[in-house]
Amino acid sequence: MANRTVKDATSIKGTNPQYLVEKIIRSRIYDSRYWKEECFALSAELLVDKAMQLKYVGGVFGGNIKPTPFLCLVLKMLQIQPEKDIIVEFIKNEDFKYVRALGAYYMRLTGTSLDCFKYLEPLLNDYRKLRSQNRQGVFELTFMDEFVDQLLREERMCDVILPRIQRRQVHEENNELEPRVSALDDDLDELAESSGEDEPPLPPRSKGRAREPGRRREHREHRGEHRSDHRADFRGDPRAEHRGERREHREHRADWAAPERPEKRHRGDYDNHREHRGDYDNHREHRGDYDNHREHRGDYDNHREHRGEHDGHREHRSERERREHRAERRHHREERREERRGRHRGEEERREIEEANALRAKLGLPPLRP
């Protein structure tokens, strides 16, 4: 049957490799459309092309438990058991991130604990984004380092129970693995050194500061005595008395030189008459402004009438000409859009073929036709 494991396959964890996936999920994968159409008679060489077409990772979704293409390819790899070198090339591939995620997931299912730490820990430095689909069929955003960290720590991933692996501490005690060095240690050391250099040294404290308050007190007392002596000398100065007498003489002379003037009786009546005359002139000016405003209002009404005639002339323009013009513009836009879309599609296909040929060359497979 098409769902049987290959004859020369080795058992993993003491059982059939396909049995690592639960029976109900395995039966749903066998009944899925992707398995029947895309995974039928799939070999290790053709598996590379299917892996490059992946767009997201995930397990099963929906109420009727539909498997994702990622999980279908995982089961197909468990069925045909590709060589370890192919899986290592999947993991080391940097062009297709979902191919790397597929290889890492298969290595976690079938590899030993030593191989898992050896090949998966370097992927913790890969921070690219991944699209993941949850059980409700909703897409979520995750990252490659987060995906690999869950493979090494969680017991269940993509709705498949992961085999137990030995702790890293045990391998370090057996000298099988070196202690893991985080990539952030160097950054933390540089940050600590830069912060230590930026801090200015504290100035040395002088021993004579304790005597400053006493010196300030003596200086204030001496300054107060000097001011009091100066004020006393100024009060007894005869020149100050002479200046006061001269000031009084000037005030008396100013009073004598300014005689009283008689009041003007008729000046106020004449000022009131001038004010009324100014009000009359202002009234005449306002009346002239009002007449000018009426003239401008008439010109504005005439302008509105001509504007209405012009608008009516524009409304009588042929609707057929405007429809033809809009249709012609729409046709030109569609032609330009199709031209850009065809050019962009051709560049994407050529780039994908080049990347696929590079990956197939690493695996020793013949290149694809352009």
Rank of each mutant, 00 (worst) to 15 (best):
C72A: 04
L130Y: 02
R304C: 01
K264Q: 15
L124C: 11
D198H: 03
V148L: 02
R326I: 08
L102Q: 03
Q136W: 07
E218K: 12
N174H: 04
L54T: 02
N175K: 13
R209W: 07
D311R: 14
E38C: 05
R341H: 12
T142E: 01
R369A: 15
E324C: 09
D269A: 15
H276C: 02
E248K: 13
D279A: 13
K362R: 15
H219T: 01
F61E: 11
S195W: 12
Y19E: 13
E309Y: 10
E295R: 12
R343C: 03
T68A: 01
V170A: 06
R223M: 13
G278C: 09
R246I: 12
R320D: 14
L363G: 01
N174E: 08
F139Q: 05
L78H: 01
L124R: 12
R246P: 04
Q81C: 03
R4M: 08
A257E: 15
G224Q: 15
C72K: 01
Y30W: 10
L177I: 08
H266W: 12
D271A: 15
A327E: 15
G342T: 07
R247E: 08
D187R: 09
L73W: 03
R227C: 07
L202T: 07
I65V: 13
M157N: 09
S182D: 01
A358W: 00
C116S: 11
H331F: 14
E324H: 12
F117I: 00
D95R: 13
L54K: 00
R322A: 13
R369G: 10
K129Y: 02
G58M: 00
C158A: 07
H219I: 08
E190N: 15
P213A: 10
A192Q: 07
K50R: 13
L188C: 00
